[in-house]
């Protein structure tokens, strides 16, 4: 229920009570979120002189990054591997979400959801380390393969390992979003489709997926966003080669000590993420194939 007290003609427009509760987020996030992000953008026009960050207004950082081949290679690679992850995660998650939404018993469903929420609160770093151990040359997988007489496969320091890491990060979230989307699909619609002689597979393709479109697209978008910004997997599982955008940022910051250039990469990343997010929203909510 909207509060009309603040808008009444008889009371002051600035209401101390309302202001008190709005102030914490305004002040804190203004100071420690908005200002840093604003500074990040501004900093792309500053220069580093004698190892010191100096205010300026030059385009040299942008020129320098945009004219380097490695920057664009890294950009393409990061987008590519993020897209692959989004696709793989969506395809892996769908049968699971479908099973949980339509087939699983309520008790199994509750357990599954708990198991899916837990990873958000277990150290991602440590889980990536676990994959290092599992995928290593002398690791668990190769030990098992060796046991059945297959030669050791080198899995660490590959894009494959990076994708494994990304999936560790985003798969639980993708399953959860897909599950909620599928749970909201009208059961009668599915029943009606069966009733009209559609087999299970055709029902999924023609009824379930179009009805849950928004959730499915958003889930894929989140998978992309999470992988695109991740630093840990490409370094420790992918061996930093080829470098992703996040690795460029850390290199420029930690070793190169060139914050403005790192900021350029960060701003390009944010722009990319915003573009992807808005395209996904347009695709999800837009007219698209609004047959339903």
């Amino acid at each position: 229920m909207p509060d009309t007290i603040t808008t009444s003609r008889r009371r002051p427009q600035i209401d101390g009570f309302a202001a008190f509760w709005a102030a914490p987020a305004l002040i804190w996030n203004g100071l420690f979120f908005l200002a840093p992000l604003g500074f990040l953008v501004g900093m792309t026009f500053w220069v580093v002189r004698n190892y010191r960050l100096t205010p300026d207004f030059v385009l040299s950082n942008w020129e320098r990054m945009f004219t380097r081949g490695f920057f664009w290679e890294s950009f393409l690679y990061t987008v590519q591997i993020g897209a692959v992850t989004a696709m793989v995660a969506s395809l892996l998650a769908f049968p699971v979400a479908y099973f949980l939404a339509f087939r699983a018993r309520p008790s199994a469903r509750r357990l599954a959801i708990f198991l899916l929420i837990t990873p958000f609160f277990t150290s991602y770093l440590v889980r990536v380390y676990a994959w290092m151990v599992i995928l290593a040359q002398e690791g668990v997988v190769n030990a098992v393969l060796g046991g059945i007489g297959i030669a050791a496969v080198s899995m660490l320091n590959t894009s494959f390992a990076t994708v494994i890491g990304y999936l560790t990060l985003c798969l639980p979230l993708v399953i959860l979003i897909q599950f909620f989307a599928l749970s909201n699909v009208d059961r009668d619609l599915v029943g009606a489709s069966h009733n009209l002689g559609c087999g299970p597979v055709r029902t999924v393709l023609t009824v379930v997926i179009p009805s849950a479109r928004i959730g499915l697209i958003l889930a894929a978008a989140f998978a992309f966003i999470l992988s695109f910004g991740d630093y840990v997997s490409p370094v420790f599982l992918g061996g930093s080669s080829p470098p992703t955008m996040s690795i460029l940022i850390v290199d420029q910051t930690k070793s190169g000590n060139n914050w403005p250039r790192a900021a350029v990469v960060a701003v390009v990343m944010i722009a990319t993420l915003v573009t992807v997010l808005f395209s996904a929203l347009a695709l999800a909510y837009g007219r698209g194939r609004a047959r339903a």
Partner: peptide, 25 residues
Amino acid sequence: FLALAALPPTVPVLILGLAMLSFFS
């Protein structure tokens, strides 16, 4: 107001880290 309050988790922590490092310095 709500965007300012709710958006931080959607920005990659790496970028938050860089932005905070530079601004906090």
